[in-house]
Design a protein around this nucleic acid. Structure first.
Lengths: 214, 214
DNA sequence: ACTGCGTGTTACCGAAAGTAACAAGGTGGG
DNA sequence: CCCACCTTGTTACTTTCGGTAACACGCAGT
């Protein structure tokens, strides 16, 4: 507090921190989320304690790393989500953007979804989902915002927007995860089928003629 | 091989294994997924090497544990999914069942979703999602089966059923995870809103009158 | 020149996964 | 009767990794 410097340009420390993050990024993308702090330090050309001075602990480093990628992905998704197009087109573009992202850089995707912060925290309280990637939560909230901005609030509760936001994001995530592993179809096909699902096709599809009914 | 015994009743070894699993279950539900093998062994009244003889390694133990709970949950979900009722009712009952399960035993839920198997495997290949809980995959396949059983296959590709299965499961999971953490509404409310979403309400809801349009 | 501060080091601690190597108890075959 | 054999159990060890203490260099500003 009280620094006369406006610090618009990064201080030396901040630049160093950025360099360390880039080194960490290289290692994590090469070795996966279980990369050791020693390996990261070695890649950066230094030793462990410096990492700890900058990031506190491993979770801190990983959080900083995740924020970077998450911000980048969120930016491109926001663009697709806010584009001036009709609802269905925007949905398809957003799905497309997400799937293209996870397809082109699966290691990043894997890291973001599985931070694997297995700290010896010995937390006695069961805070569910402390390990789940914050990316999905942020995305869900973001989408909820867009939904409640665009949809008539009289349509239903405002809470509906948040449920839908998280629900849709979860659908996208799970389908994307499965698709990335099994590659059962082209990306465009997946996009269309998910959009169809959200467009109410589940409700209107006919039953099998001779099936178990309903 | 070649045992004349039909081994319908559990052998002594299998019974022991079951006891160990129950002890592990107690510890994991008390301490979370980061419970140490020592702690589990202590709870079972024995020492580590025995656990390793029975389960190979920590992942093995956790897998065995997860299979138990997953099977139990899948059984109750199958019941709701296959019940003789109309499509919407079945959907709502299934959502209800799932949410009730994760609500009543959040520790089990947390364990199943975050196995945290951080083995020193040093796998050079990036098999995405090796860490994700198999529960969701199994559930997705299960639902896909039900969908393709019941829906007219002429409606669209058979592949559609799998996309929808995984997508719907992901929606349920993400919404449930968020709901469990924030508790923004009653369970029945959440069920209704998710069902509405899948019933095409996203497509038919009107825009805000003065909003950004579309 | 002295005082800080940020950067860097080596050397260590503690916890946890995983692994010998060895001991004890029961069981069937000679 | 006794010996091999299998299962259960132990103690004691290695390795790896997250995290920390203590110390050393370089470079501002006063």
């Amino acid at each position: 507090m009280g620094s006369t410097q406006q610090d618009d340009r990064p201080s030396a420390t901040e630049r160093r921190r950025g360099e360390l993050l880039e080194a960490a990024d290289r290692v994590v993308l090469r070795d996966g989320p279980e990369a050791s702090m020693n390996a990261i330090a070695a890649e950066a050309g230094i030793t462990k304690p410096i990492l700890y001075r900058h990031f506190g602990d491993k979770s801190g480093l990983y959080r900083a790393l995740a924020v970077r990628h998450t911000d980048a992905l969120l930016d491109s998704l926001r663009a697709a989500l806010d584009a001036p197009a009709d609802r269905r087109t925007r949905l398809e573009r957003t799905l497309e953007t997400y799937l293209a992202a996870i397809e082109s850089r699966p290691q990043v995707y894997r890291f973001l979804m599985h931070p694997a912060e297995s700290g010896p925290a010995a937390d006695s309280g069961f805070d569910i989902g402390r390990h789940t990637a914050p990316l999905l939560r942020r995305l869900g909230e973001e989408l909820a915002e867009v939904i409640s901005e665009r949809l008539d609030p009289g349509t239903d509760d405002v809470a509906q927007a948040r449920v839908w936001g998280h629900g849709i994001v979860g659908m996208m995530h799970a389908a994307g995860d499965w698709w990335l592993r099994e590659r059962p179809c082209a990306r465009a096909e997946l996009v269309r089928q998910l959009a169809d699902l959200l467009w109410g096709r589940l409700a209107t599809s006919p039953n099998r003629p001779q099936g178990p009914g309903f």
